[in-house]
Design a protein around this nucleic acid. Structure first.
Lengths: 267, 267
DNA sequence: CCAGGCCGTATCGGGCTGCGATACGGAACA
DNA sequence: TGTTCCGTATCGCAGCCCGATACGGCCTGG
């Protein structure tokens, strides 16, 4: 009986470390403080395994246990995001470009980063006269399929790639307006591809309209999106696009990395 | 020869997971993109070990490798910080309290969290008429021993505890004004303890003056600090304290958690 | 042009370390 | 007071990680 299971360990990844990161992620997603046994249920891991993983994360400083033996994240978790932001080349240039865009349009500006089936907020500038939110949204996850930023980024992929992203997404009807059919979403992406920007109204958040343009890397692949959002009551869709498309597309272009020449010429 | 080394594995922590988190931390701190061999040097780990750890972090989504085989953080790193912020009870109440304080004083407001020998920025509200920084400082680490926030938090500990924190800190002379002697720092902490707030001028950053008050948990232990900073040229030290001490102390008090009764009475 | 060094990648057998079962004490609840 | 669930600690086995090694590609310099 030595031939029982195909080992198929293709990856170099370390099992116990993977499980430890999984535990961290589950705790991170659970808004409420989590008990040890609860994590065992959520992850499908053994109780002993969770115990060891949690002890590792506590000793590394990412978790602490409260007085009632629950587990919660520590401020150290903030550092990782900060270090990402300051070490990222895109963020460096985004500073000036977004400030200028903010002066031009006077509305709330967002920059979010492409991560496949979802995107992550990375920067936010409040609109003129708008209350500043101390609780910034940096790090918040939004789906790709139903947001202006997501549509704009998808428009820089081929149809095949778009469909592959949609396959890995759960197409949830977030509002009555949300498109949940891959074919219809692909149509919207094609429109965005032709226009150079994407406008989405009321699909991700009810009564909100948003416009976005994609930032691309040196291969033309999407890495981020610049977007402006406002209330649907304040703008007609066409007027909204007329007003914001040009500055946003221009800013996204300035943020994009120049394409590398396709030939292999040397200097 | 079976009695060679005392195993002394006191902790439950998993070795390989600890090393994987160490690799992530080293990459996170290195502002520049890091090569695999470089990490091996920085961590003191075997090349193979780093290879496996990095592969684990890549497959978990926290790292990606660039075209030139360097390693860098991914946007996923932002999510951890976001989840910390929105799941933290202190942040929830800080929203309103800091907004009110901002209206009262009109200056830049910060909230940072206690983490022993250092503190972590968690919230920032820009001052009136001040340029908003798109690159927020949330997640940035500052030392405890030479900052107003740090001194205010230390003032809520006993002298012994203060000295223990200072022992684990590297007391670096950041400016010509920085106090680097534990005895002198302890004196400053005692002053802060008597006043209920801490004023530090030019010790962490040259030509900057800052004032802070500590936020405490239900046991009276420091968990955070509210601080306001400005340029040393604009304020005299006494005038600065006169002007900001009361509103900051008041805001920190509203943020603090009520003390639990010391007896064990049941309802 | 080639030799040398450095780096990233893949493989492999041995031994140690993580795995999971088990047990115990305390808290919450009925 | 009995029951149940949870957090914690322990232990022997074997599966998995460890670290050495080898290979190929890329620069650098002679």
């Amino acid at each position: 009986m030595t031939d029982v299971a195909p080992p198929d360990r293709q990856t170099l990844a370390i099992r116990s470390a993977e499980r430890t990161l999984l535990v961290l992620e589950v705790i991170s997603r659970n808004r409420r403080r989590t008990s040890l046994a609860g994590i065992a249920r959520d992850t499908g891991l053994d109780k002993s395994a969770v115990q060891r993983c949690a002890a590792t994360l506590v000793s590394a400083g990412y978790l602490r246990q409260t007085a009632d033996h629950k587990l919660e994240l520590t401020p150290k978790c903030l550092e990782l995001g900060y270090n990402f932001l300051i070490s990222n080349a895109l963020m460096e240039r985004a500073y000036r470009v977004l400030m200028r865009l903010r002066r031009e349009v006077g509305e709330r500006i967002n920059l979010s980063l492409f991560a496949g089936s979802y995107l992550v907020y990375a920067m936010r500038l409040t609109g003129k006269g708008e209350w500043e939110l101390p609780m910034s949204l940096v790090g918040r996850r939004m789906p790709t399929y139903c947001t202006a930023g997501g549509r704009a980024m998808l428009s820089k992929l081929s149809d095949d790639e778009v469909l592959r992203v949609l396959e890995t997404s759960t197409l949830h009807r977030r509002t009555p307006m949300t498109l949940t059919s891959p074919a219809l979403i692909l149509d919207a992406v094609r429109t965005a591809r032709a226009d150079g920007y994407a406008v989405v109204s009321g699909e991700a958040v009810a009564r909100e309209i948003a416009i976005a343009a994609a930032v691309t890397d040196s291969h033309g692949k999407p890495i981020a999106a610049v977007h402006v959002s406002s209330e649907l009551s304040r703008w007609d869709k066409a007027a909204f696009a007329d007003h914001f498309a040009e500055p946003i597309v221009s800013a996204a272009g300035r943020l994009s990395f120049d394409a590398v020449p396709v030939d292999h010429a040397r200097s």
